[in-house]
Every structure is written in C-alpha cells, then in structure tokens.
C-alpha cells in the first residue's frame, strides 16, 4: 500500500515539529526516515499511524484520505521504540491481542487465532517462548515479539520507531539483517525511523533525510551518500572534512590557498567545501606542505590526521595501502582532493 503525505505541518507549542512535509512512500518498499533528534521523523511516523494529528496537510493511505480515520481503522502495524509490550500478558497473548479485540463478527475462531499466533512466533523464531512474560525476554527477543504482534493484524503498512535503538551493537546488526530478509519475503510497505545513518543506508530501499521538521533529501542509500543535496546531508551522512573557502572563477580556495578545488557550482564568494576522508589522497613527500599528526589503524581501515596550513584534515584509506606508504606521525606529506562538493554560505 502506498502512502501519500502532503503539506503535513505539526506544531507543539512554539516548536514546529513538521513544516509542510511532502512524501510518497511507494508500495512494498522499505523506507528510512533518517535525522537527528528533533528533526520530526518520529512525529511524522506517529501521524501516519494516527497517534498524532497534524495541524495542516493531508495523508492518503492507498489513495484514500486517512486523517479522519482512527488508528484502529488504518490497518497499520506499529513497533514502538521501547516495544510497549503488554507486561501483564504472555508472549502468546501479546501477539494474539490484535486478533482477540476484533468485533465479534470479524473475530477468528480461537483455534484459528492460536494457529496464526504460533505461525507468527515461528516466523520471529520465538515459538518456544509463547508462555513467557515480556520481562523474561532479552531486548532482541522483545523486539521480535513486538514485530510479531504488529504483523498479527495483517497490516497494510508496517511502521517502526527506532526499532533497534535500545539494543546493543551486535544484536542490532543481526536484527537488522533479519528484518531486511523478512521484508524481502513478505514485501510489506514499511517505514522505519532512525538516527543511525549506517542503519538507514544498509537497510532501506530509499532514505529520507530530515532536519528541523523538513525533508532535506530523498533518494537511494547510494544517492544520498554520494550526492548529498545540501550541506546538512553531507555533514549528517558519514564522516566528512568541512572547510571554509572562497570561490572565484570556478575555483574554491581553502584557507590561504594551500588547497584548491575546481568547482562547477554556481557558487561565488564565500562557501563551504565538504570532502569525504576517503576522497583525500595522501602521499609522503619530503618537505611537503602537510604533516601527519595522528594515525589510527583499527580493523581494515586506517585513519590519518594531517595538519596543513593550520587546517586539521582527516583522510581514510585501507590498511594495506597505508602500510605500503610507510608513514609515521611527524612525516611530511602532500594532500590531494579527489572529490569534493562546495555549497554557498
């Protein structure tokens, strides 16, 4: 089911959480709402679920106006950041809840409900835990119960609020893969909120980057990472070197002109240049302008900090290449910018 968001605005007191947001969620895709806290991403998700109502704008679920619908009539599955499992119910009863509260004429027979719940628990690999209480489960298990519970009502859309936020790094990674696999199997239109760019880039079909109640950019993970459309997206996605520069005749000069970048932007005057650490080429050179001020080699990558004309740069390369260069702290070097992006101030 597709979701159409148009001109959604939401104000909390004097704080504008969403400022005329337009968004289309395509049927069957897995979409990430990515942004720092306070960017309005959770508010947008809650508006889709009907847990919050906007001050202005329209929301269409599958082409039908949905703002007038109560949450129960929207056929959405919602997974809460802290799971919100019913603490006084067993895992089985948690998952069965949505089926049991249906009006009598739509309710399935008890045996059918049982079969369905057990099927879902098998799907989330928790078949043996049906009689446990939420307090007796680990964080990852609780999250999967929450997912099974949301799926039980056969929603047309699955909405997840920071689904992995409360989990430790290892479980988070496992669960992320598992969710991706699950989505590939059942193809339910899904929207998840996250502040973790790695999570959004790895998991989503498309990423929506949000900031201060507005959408900054929408695109595939590769799109938004390689072609950020604004300074904010550049800074928010991945590591980046940020330089103040002056642009004249298609050339951006950084600092006192120690580094320059050719730019085809329509930027003039003062600007900001962004360079990803892996787009900085570093080579040892006796008497070179730069000086290696720090080296961090962890895992397959090497991070090299360089001082150049009062600027602090960060370069990244793979470990083998770094070893072959044979640089140590204090060495002189040259610095070359392979790729950069300049925005007007």
């Amino acid at each position: 089911m597709a979701i159409q968001v148009q001109g959604i605005t939401k104000q909390f007191g004097t704080y504008r959480a969403l400022d005329s947001v337009d968004l289309e969620v395509r049927s069957g895709e897995l979409l990430a709402l990515l942004g720092p806290s306070g960017s309005g991403k959770t508010t947008l998700l809650r508006i889709m679920a009907g847990l919050e109502s906007p001050d202005a704008g329209s929301l269409q679920l599958n082409g039908e106006e949905a703002l007038g619908l109560k949450p129960r009539d929207r056929q959405v599955g919602f997974v809460f950041q802290h799971y919100a499992l019913f603490r006084h119910m067993t895992v089985f009863d948690n998952v069965a809840f949505g089926l049991k509260v249906r009006p009598r004429d739509q309710r399935l027979p008890a045996a059918e409900i049982k079969r369905r719940v057990m099927e879902l628990l098998e799907l989330v690999q928790l078949g043996h835990f049906a009689e446990r209480y939420p307090a007796q489960l680990s964080g990852g298990q609780r999250q999967r119960v929450a997912l099974a519970r949301a799926l039980a009502i056969e929603p047309k859309v699955l909405l997840l609020d920071e689904p992995f936020g409360a989990l430790d790094a290892k479980v988070r990674k496992e669960l992320r893969r598992w969710l991706r696999k699950l989505h590939d199997e059942i193809h339910i239109t899904s929207v998840f909120v996250t502040h973790d760019q790695e999570e959004a880039l790895e998991l989503a079909d498309r990423v929506v980057v949000m900031s201060q109640g507005r959408i900054e950019q929408i695109g595939t993970p590769a799109d938004v990472y390689d072609h950020p459309s604004s300074a904010f997206v550049y800074e928010f996605l991945g590591q980046v070197n940020r330089f103040d520069c002056t642009v004249e005749g298609g050339v951006a000069r950084i600092g006192n002109g120690a580094l320059s970048i050719a730019t085809d932007e329509t930027v003039r005057g003062s600007g900001v240049a962004y360079v990803r650490p892996h787009d900085l080429g570093v080579a040892p050179a006796v008497g070179g302008p730069g000086r290696v001020s720090g080296v961090h080699v962890v895992g397959p990558d090497a991070r090299v900090e360089i001082e150049l004309d009062g600027l602090n740069l960060e370069a990244e390369m793979d470990r083998e290449r770094f070893t072959s260069l044979g640089m140590v702290v204090g060495d002189r070097c040259t610095v070359q910018i392979d790729r950069a992006r300049v925005f007007a101030r």
Binding site: F80, R102, A152, I153
Partner: peptide, 25 residues
C-alpha cells in the same frame, strides 16, 4: 501511555484498552 497506544493501533477500542491494558497494569 505507550501500551495504550499499542492497543489502539492493534484495533482495540478505548473501552477494551482500559479493561485489557490499563486496568491490569
């Protein structure tokens, strides 16, 4: 009120939410 919200999204009425979720808690 997260559990109440969860109940509402899952299709419970306000009354059902009170009796099945809030009151037991």
């Amino acid at each position: 009120s997260e559990e109440e919200e969860a109940a509402l999204v899952l299709g419970a009425s306000g009354w059902q939410t009170f009796w099945r979720v809030t009151l037991p808690n």
